[in-house]
Amino acid sequence: MATRDPARELPGGTVIWLFVAIELLTFGLFFVGFAASRRSDPALFLAGQEQLHPLSGAINTVVLLSGGWLAARGVLANRADAPRRTAGFFVAAALAGILFMVIKSHEYSEVFAAGISLSTNTFWFFYLFVTGLHFLHVLAGTGFLLGTAWQAKRGAYGPDAPSTVEAVAVFWHLVDLIWVFLFPLIYLAR
């Protein structure tokens, strides 16, 4: 964004970016595993996909992307030395995370009600395991956002101490980024 210092540096520090790299590599392996398994039995994967609701996946994508936008606005507010606005944006982003989890939980409840589990078949193993892992990231990110909002409101951050705010936002965007691939892979690509 245009407001960063011209001296190039990683927002949030190097450690969070090493974590991002590890996470992207890990989820990338799961994505490739999903696509390779689908290639060996496309009929099984098609049958599984037909039981999902692409619209709820699309709505959840909009929810997460909106949460990402709110978190990015929070970072800008922190740089502008506006702690109350920083906290407000982060709380709003956390609410997006909570809405995502509510919608996803509804989908999980339908899947479990149909008697489906991790051991049903390869499609459902990947669906439940990978989206479940992503769900845990959303849960953790929501907690980080709320904790950071609380601290921001108390004046713990600001333009001279932006690392925590930026690192939490980067983590939240990582959650977005993983879902941006999960949505087409699991719901749309056939």
């Binding site: 964004m1 960063r4 190039r8 540096e9 990683l10 927002p11 990402g68 936008w69 978190a71 990015a72 936002a169 980067v170 965007h173 990582l174 977005d176 980024l177 941006v180 691939f181 949505f183 087409p184 892979l185 749309l188 690509a189 056939r190």
Partner: peptide, 28 residues
């Protein structure tokens, strides 16, 4: 269809990386 939706996904991922995650201002 798979190619199209995955192509759109990689565009979205680049946007998130460049703008939301601020990689456009990070070390190249």
């Amino acid at each position: 269809t798979a190619t199209l939706v995955l192509g759109i996904a990689v565009i979205k991922a680049h946007l998130i990386g460049a703008v939301y995650m601020e990689l456009m201002d990070a070390p190249r």
